[in-house]
Design a protein around this nucleic acid. Structure first.
Lengths: 149, 149
DNA sequence: TTACAAACATTGTATCTACAACTATTGTCG
DNA sequence: CGACAATAGTTGTAGATACAATGTTTGTAA
C-alpha cells in the first residue's frame, strides 16, 4: 500500500524524506508482524534473533560481545536478553575457563527444537515477503546496502 | 555497507529472507541516527514525529485518534506521548466542547519554533540519505510500498 | 427513557530500552 | 613487579512500550 495511505500524509518534502519515513514505517510494520508470529512461542523478535545467531554457530559457543555484534539492534542489552532465554532453558551460559572475563553462550536442545517448530510456521510469513519477486528483493537489498554506505 | 558485514552473518536462506533482515536492520539504523539527531533538543523520534504531524494540521487541532492514525508506530501510547510534550510546553490539549469524549491537540508556538530549529539541522542527515540518487529513492519507495501490499 | 453498544481516551502493569556507572579479569609497559 | 589501560560483562535507573482493562461520553433503538 502507498505510504501516503498508511500514515495518512499526502505529501513529503522530497523523495528522500519520504524514503526515510518509508523505511522506518516498513521496519516497524515488519517488526510487528514478527512479534505476532513469535507470540505463540512466547519469545520476542530479539530473543528469536539471538537464538538464530546461536544456532548459526552451534555447537561452538559464542561470547556475549560476539552475540551483540551480530544482533540487529545493538543497543538492546545482551546480558538481560540471554538471561531471559536461560530462564526458559533455551540457552546455557558458562564462564570461560581460559579467559574468565568472558561468558560462553550456547543454544540448548530445547532451544534448537523451538527454532525447528518456528521454522515450520515461516511459510505464511514468507508469502507476505513474496509480494516482491526475487529480482525486486535483490534490488531492494542493493539499495538499502547502498544507503548505509 | 553490505548487510553481511554489518551483522557479521555470511549467508541467508534466500534473497527474501535477507531482505526482511535488511529492512529491520536499516530501520533500526535510521531510528538510531534520528535519536542522536534529536537528542540535543531533548525529544525522542516519536515525539518529533507527533510534533510534525501537528504542524501539518496547524492551526487546526487534531484529536488523539487522528494523531495515532498518522504515527509511524501505532502501538506507542499517544496519551502519554502527548502528555510529555505538554509538560514541555510544546503542545496544548483541550477537551472538545462539542464532543466531550475527544481531546483536541494543537502545537504551540514553542513547539513550532523547536521544529524550525530542528529543520535547520536536517542538512547533515539529508546528506546521508543522498547516498542514494533521487531515482534510487523513488525505486526504494516503490518496492517498499509493493512489499506492504 | 433507559439500556446497551460504540467511540474516545486513560490507566495499570510487566516488560523492555537507553545509557551511564560499575565490577572483575587480563594485557602491557616502565 | 606494580600501576594503569583495555576487555568483558553486569547493574541501576529513568523512561518507553505492549497490551489489556477501565472510565467517560455519546449514539441508538426497543
Amino acid at each position: 500500500m502507498a505510504l501516503e495511505d498508511d500514515i495518512r500524509q499526502d505529501k513529503f518534502e522530497n523523495e528522500h524524506h519520504k524514503m526515510a519515513v518509508n523505511i522506518l514505517f516498513t521496519g516497524s510494520w515488519l517488526h510487528n508482524l514478527n512479534a505476532l508470529r513469535f507470540k505463540p512461542f512466547e519469545i520476542t523478535p530479539e530473543q528469536y534473533n539471538v537464538l538464530r545467531i546461536l544456532r548459526g554457530s552451534h555447537p561452538k559457543p559464542l561470547m556475549l560481545t560476539e552475540v551483540t555484534s551480530r544482533m540487529l539492534d545493538k543497543s538492546s542489552n545482551a546480558t538481560r536478553l540471554v538471561e531471559k532465554l536461560r530462564q526458559k532453558g533455551l540457552v546455557k551460559r558458562e564462564i570461560c575457563e581460559t579467559n574468565r572475563r568472558q561468558v560462553d553462550i550456547i543454544i540448548t536442545d530445547k532451544g534448537l527444537s523451538l527454532l525447528t517448530k518456528i521454522d515450520k510456521t515461516t511459510d505464511d510469513w514468507m508469502k507476505t515477503m513474496k509480494n516482491l519477486s526475487r529480482q525486486d528483493a535483490q534490488e531492494l537489498n542493493r539499495l538499502l546496502d547502498k544507503l548505509r554506505g
